[in-house]
């Protein structure tokens, strides 16, 4: 990772709102994120935290009639938030591609695998039909499919879950994009298959010098694969930093609480840590104040900022709100 290189993707104050009953609700708020070339970034958070909305915003996959994007997202010098549909069609698949959670529904059930991979090259390259077919076979072999010719002829329902996700990856890397967004790519898979798919993603990233944004809820997956991590809560990034910083010196109360609630060997017999309360729903998102504050009520209100911003802790480690300075676990206090 060369620090001097210009960043691949920079978002500033990126906001996405959804229209529900003629009212706009913020699903993504003030997202400032930088993705460098050749980097593996993980965005981690629980359901409804806005991580998938972020992916769809960057990919331009939101329905323009019931969503609104503001702020800026610059990808290779291009302002994505101002891009037209035609402009997007030129970079999607070529420079920017995506892998989805459920590969069965993400593949067209009526088209052969070869056609579906071929399609992306047909639109973005000058390769002839036979050249493209050769490349399809090569791609399938690269993602670890043993009999590419046979798989190329098959339909999605004839493949196993792991095979389908390999096909999705082959499709995503077909034009050697600079950035791949993988939205929960292993959630639907068994643990042994998950490990293989993560290895494959990592390999693809290193061999093609692609950057990957991996979106997941699984902290173990993050720890195994990412270079850098952004933790999201209620539409905001609450902490970001290197994978070492996040897992070994987590600062934000949410990050610390999440890590504590993972079942580990050393807490096998104890109760697991439970974060009080619930994630605020989209309609009930507070307009101001720290969104995590209601879930750590024992921390005095004065510890929080009125309008929490990201604070730099050095070495690229950032944390939202000042409450991290005074945060402690109630259970530890009692003991």
């Amino acid at each position: 990772m060369k620090k001097t290189q210009a960043p691949l993707l920079v978002t500033k104050h990126l906001k996405t709102s959804f229209k529900i009953n003629d009212h706009y609700y913020q699903a993504l708020d003030d997202v400032n994120l930088t993705v460098n070339p050749d980097e593996f970034l993980a965005i981690v958070g629980e359901s409804g935290c806005g991580k998938s909305t972020f992916a769809n915003t960057i990919m331009g996959l939101l329905d323009e009639h019931d969503s609104k994007v503001s702020g800026s997202a610059v990808f290779e010098g291009q302002e994505l938030t101002k891009l037209t549909e035609t402009g997007y069609d030129e970079i999607r698949g070529l420079k920017l591609s995506m892998i989805f959670q459920d590969p069965l529904s993400a593949l067209n059930p009526l088209k052969r695998i070869a056609n579906q991979i071929d399609e992306v090259m047909a639109y973005h390259t000058d390769l002839s039909k036979t050249e493209r077919y050769q490349r399809v076979l090569k791609l399938l072999a690269e993602v670890g499919i043993h009999d590419p010719k046979r798989t190329a002829r098959q339909f999605p329902h004839q493949l196993s879950g792991g095979m389908r996700q390999r096909v999705m990856i082959a499709m995503a890397v077909a034009c050697k994009p600079d950035l791949i967004i993988a939205d929960e790519p292993t959630t639907a898979l068994d643990v042994t298959i998950q490990a293989q798919i993560l290895d494959l993603l990592r390999r693809v990233q290193q061999e093609n010098h692609t950057s990957i944004i991996l979106i997941t809820h699984d902290l173990g997956v993050v720890a195994e694969t990412a270079d850098r991590v952004a933790v999201m809560y209620a539409g905001q990034i609450v902490e970001s930093g290197s994978v070492q910083q996040i897992f070994k010196e987590p600062q934000h109360p949410y990050t610390r609480s999440l890590l504590r609630s993972i079942p580990q060997i050393d807490n096998a017999t104890d109760d697991l840590y439970v974060i009080q309360g619930n994630v605020p729903s989209l309609q009930k998102m507070p307009a101001a104040g720290d969104r995590f504050a209601p879930r750590i009520p024992w921390i005095p209100a004065s510890a929080h900022e009125d309008l929490p911003v990201m604070h730099d802790l050095g070495d690229g480690h950032q944390v939202r709100c000042t409450c991290y300075r005074q945060f402690y676990f109630k259970e530890d206090q009692r003991a």
């Binding site: 643990v191 490990a195 290895d199 902290l219 173990g220 070492q244 070994k248 890590l259």
Partner: peptide, 23 residues
Amino acid sequence: KQLLEAIPQTDVDHREQHREARL
């Protein structure tokens, strides 16, 4: 054995070792 090796670990310092062991 191989099932246990496939569990993702949150121990970021030894992830390369873990990966090699898994492979």
